[in-house]
């Protein structure tokens, strides 16, 4: 899985360990990563990015994953999104699908599944 040098994977998760471990996992697989501790932080610095892939935690204080996603979509940003969540919620899942997320993974997730999804996201542009 190489050859995406112009594409980043953006990780937005308020949990430091999850965020940092995702950076390790993706880096070990040759993927360029940028991480953000909050949805607000991402919005302030990368709201315009449309390339690459966004790994988005759903349960965050202040601005939630779904709220960030809605803001991005409202601005016409179609970046592929993989939602990650600590709990399953049918209502939330339905709302996410309306914002066309690539997948919703529940924590802890299978690394092969995540890497496969990223591969798809970075391939389709």
């Amino acid at each position: 899985m190489t050859g995406y040098s112009d594409s980043f994977v953006y990780v937005v998760d308020d949990n430091r360990a999850v965020r940092d471990s995702l950076v390790s996992l993706l880096t070990s697989n040759g993927i360029a990563v940028r991480s953000f501790a909050s949805a607000k932080d991402f919005l302030a610095r990368r709201a315009h990015v449309a390339q690459g892939c966004l790994i988005l935690d759903l349960f965050m204080p202040e601005l939630s994953g779904l709220e960030l996603l809605r803001l991005l979509r409202a601005r016409g940003n179609r970046i592929p999104v993989i939602a990650i969540s600590g709990r399953s919620d049918a209502v939330l899942d339905a709302a996410l699908k309306r914002e066309s997320v690539l997948a919703i993974l529940s924590k802890p997730f299978n690394d092969a599944e995540l890497l496969g999804l990223i591969d798809d996201a970075l391939r389709v542009r």
Binding site: N15, A17, V18, D20, S21, L22, S24, L25, T27, S28, N29, F59, I84, G86, R87, K107, P108, F109, D111
Partner: peptide, 20 residues
């Protein structure tokens, strides 16, 4: 459950990265 899922996720990621 929610709290335990976070470190579990991290541990999984770390060990998979180490392996890689």
């Amino acid at each position: 459950a929610h709290e335990l899922n976070q470190p579990l996720t991290a541990v999984t990621n770390y060990v998979k990265a180490a392996q890689r």
